[in-house]
Design a protein around this nucleic acid. Structure first.
Length: 470
DNA sequence: ATGTCC
């Protein structure tokens, strides 16, 4: 491992790697090789057919299925580049949505308990059970898989303006519900509009600090302002799609002449039947995840209006588990790439044509959920950044769930949060123990490294007032 | 992350 510059380390190319590995991190954030094999995974990803420039890792990198979480890899489609479900992850289009209320934290204080009770009741969560929507059948689920947040807005769960504040205007093109298995459909039908569990949450937050006033203003953020952050994904549907397509690709990799150092890197050329099938199913799951966040946000907005008389306005909705077909400058030309971001967030710079007009001068809002009780960040993209306009996605685990439970034995996680004046709703003791800050890297150090590496810029820091968990 | 093993 070579320290190329502050916040940038290189794993030199060696056979069978096709490109080097590049890790954006401070020395203290680098994974401990004894406890976490994610740097081996960075090197493994570098062997994938068609990979361009480098196998990248963000400062929150940690061990994942095949690819590391916090990994970014782009493949050149016309040069036989592959797509790999493990490069997206099981929770397809897992992401974050941030909303603001025209309300100061001091104004909310007397209503906070009532707001939290309302949010708790309005937010289906936990393993398996409950959802905002009860779909009538396959036709309606297909509409969700094709239309994402756009379909939810069409059905009255939100307003047209929301779509301008969603990545891809609320839906990915080229979703192909025919590539979604019956089992995935069955799992998904019961869960449209549900939070899930684990590190997924809905938080009421306040803007604690603003680092860039003009950009914060463009995003609609001011000091002391009340916000709602929702972190969730595609539930059982995305999980089943990942499982199905990994299995399908494992069977045909040899036929495509592809050999990988880890079975979990199962992949197929983007232009192959299996590659296109996965991308069609992945896009469907992405739309499901976006509709999911749209429904939960709408439900939260109704609670806010009832309890405070103020509505919630969408700042942005962005995924951190997705592969996207994007055009990028490579060696002086433009190439069509399949950019895998797994536990990594797209960060479009100011002026990017994919941004809505009102955000174009400021850049894309990049939403970074912190570990429970520690605060979250809003960042933005910077021009000329490396790693295909990507940055970190969160704190990143340093302890497994099991380790976190063992390490926290004797402590009362709920009491710890309440001692920090954070209201807690509906979380199991074990669920809380698994998500305690000690199980994660320091979010501020992660963001510091991401900014230091030139991947993004800080805009604001948010702190939790109340949390709803599964 | 996940009907934490079909």
């Amino acid at each position: 491992m070579v320290e190329e510059s502050p916040y940038r380390f290189r794993i030199d190319r060696r056979d069978p790697m096709r490109v080097p590995g590049v890790i954006f991190a401070s020395r203290s954030l680098l994974p401990d090789a004894g406890a976490d094999r994610s740097l081996d995974q960075v090197a493994n990803v570098a062997t994938l057919p068609g990979i361009v420039d480098a196998s990248y890792a963000m400062p929150d990198v940690h061990w994942g299925y095949g690819f590391p979480i916090g990994g970014v890899a782009a493949t050149d489609i016309e040069a036989g580049g592959v797509v790999s479900p493990g490069g997206v992850g099981f929770d397809i289009s897992c992401g974050v949505r941030l909303l603001t209320a025209d309300l100061d934290r001091d104004e909310l204080r007397p209503r906070l308990d009532a707001v939290m009770d309302g949010l708790s009741e309005a937010t289906p969560r936990g393993m398996g059970k409950g959802a905002v929507w009860h779909l009538t059948g396959r036709d309606e689920l297909d509409a969700v898989l094709r239309g994402g947040s756009r379909y939810a807005v069409e059905r009255g769960f939100g307003v047209e303006r929301d779509l301008h504040r969603c990545e891809d205007y609320g839906a990915v093109d080229d979703a192909d519900p025919a590539q979604v298995s019956e089992r995935a459909i069955e799992r998904g039908a019961r869960q449209v509009g549900s939070l899930g569990s684990g590190n997924h949450f809905l938080e009421v937050q306040a803007v604690e600090q603003v680092y860039d006033e003009p950009v914060a203003e463009a995003f609609g953020l001011r000091p002391g302002q009340v916000c709602v952050m929702i972190h969730c994904g595609s539930r059982g549907l995305g999980h089943q799609i990942c499982t199905d397509h990994v299995r399908a690709m494992e069977k045909v990799m040899g036929r495509h002449g592809i050999h990988v150092p880890d079975r979990q890197l199962a992949c197929a050329p983007v232009s192959s039947h299996e590659g296109r099938a996965y991308l069609g199913a992945m896009a469907a799951a992405a739309n499901y995840a976006r509709a999911n966040r749209q429904l939960l946000a709408h439900a939260a907005g109704q609670i806010f209006e009832r309890q405070t008389g103020r509505r919630l306005d969408l700042v942005y909705d962005i995924s951190h588990n997705l592969a996207k077909i994007e055009d990028h400058a490579v060696d002086g030309g433009t190439r069509r790439l399949c950019v895998h971001r797994k536990g990594a967030t797209r960060a479009l710079p100011p002026g990017h044509p994919d941004l809505p007009e009102e955000l174009r001068a400021a850049g894309q809002p990049v939403l970074i959920p912190g570990s429970m009780g520690t605060g979250s960040y809003v960042l933005t993209g910077v021009a000329g950044a490396p790693a295909w306009a990507s940055t970190c996605h969160g704190a990143g685990r340093v302890q497994s769930r099991k380790q976190a439970v063992v390490a926290g034995r004797g402590a009362d996680p709920r009491a710890q949060l309440e001692a920090q004046d954070i209201a807690v709703r509906g979380a199991s003791r074990r669920g809380l123990a698994e998500e305690m800050p000690a199980a994660y890297k320091d979010i501020s150090a992660v963001v510091e490294a991401a900014e230091g590496a030139g991947l993004c810029r800080k805009v604001a820091r948010l702190v939790p007032l109340g949390v709803v968990k599964g």
